[in-house]
Amino acid sequence: MIKLSHGSGGVETAEIIEKLFLKRLPESLKKVAGGLGLDFPDDAAAIPMGDGRYLVVTIDAYTVNPPFFPGGDIGVLAASGSINDVLMLGGRPVAMLDSIIAEEGLPYETLDRVVKSFLSVLETEGVALIGGDFKVMPKGQLDKIVITTVGIGVAERVIVDRPRHGDKIVVSDFVGDHGAVILMLQMGDVDKPEQLKLKSDVKPLTKLMVPLVEKYGEYIHAARDPTRGGLAMVLNDWAKAGGGVIVVEEESLPVRPEVASYAGMLGIDPLYLASEGVAVLAIDPSVAEEVVKFVRGLGFQNARIVGEFREAKQHRGYVLLKTLAGGLRILEPPRGDIVPRIC
């Protein structure tokens, strides 16, 4: 039986995808020859264009409850999400397709507002909407609205997420804001986000990634936006993909105190909360400091180095959090189920 946790984006999702798709497909059909596809877990796929460049393609369905939240709405999210996925593979976003499914009875104004925000993101980012689909489902068959978007871009060089020994892990901003806001709304503390002046970080990262890739592309060994599963998910994926260990300094992690305290009340580590406008990068150590300065210069004042990737012979794939006290805590990959461990 399919459980909610299968769609959590964590360990359970990886397991079901493996079973349903990856095991069944022959290697040759997991990608277009010379490109990137299902064979490697990353933000988007790449197809070689023959001139040395790549066509970057990504698809994502967005459902969020509630559809409007401080700092944005599902329209902004659907546009930004796919734009960011194209960017994180090293692409420059050029076009988008969308598919909207609305629930019968949804107020026209709601749909109007969502589409307006969706389009306004495309406009500011200069991304063309080249196709789409619109459907309505009978009441009760889905929750208000689902938007699926396909993002398309072009890349000179594809950033395949494979960190190398010594790479510094750079985070562009505070993490977990989006996830914390959505959780607050879902838990029913409606007044909380305003009270805490907390809003979702949802935004396209074009202004960050395009200049960064242009200038430092060859030094970026991995790039990801920590959406579902948060920073913990990205780092665990990378530790595994690079066949090493990532050590992160707890002290250096950018988490807003209000996010930390709210997450604490729910028993959630903020490192598992989604961000929708943050980039995580694995940068060659020779330029890491420089890159941080450059990123800050682009307006991302909170950018910083949070840790390091190390090759390892044993215990590959572990993400270790160096605590303030000097311990090394294992940061586990996110899961959808709550499984108790503490005796």
Binding site: H315, L320, G327, L328, R329, I330
Partner: peptide
């Protein structure tokens, strides 16, 4: 306690 990596290494 094995949430400490050093303890996990010790067990190993």
């Amino acid at each position: 306690d094995l949430d400490s990596f050093k303890a996990l290494e010790d067990l190993d």
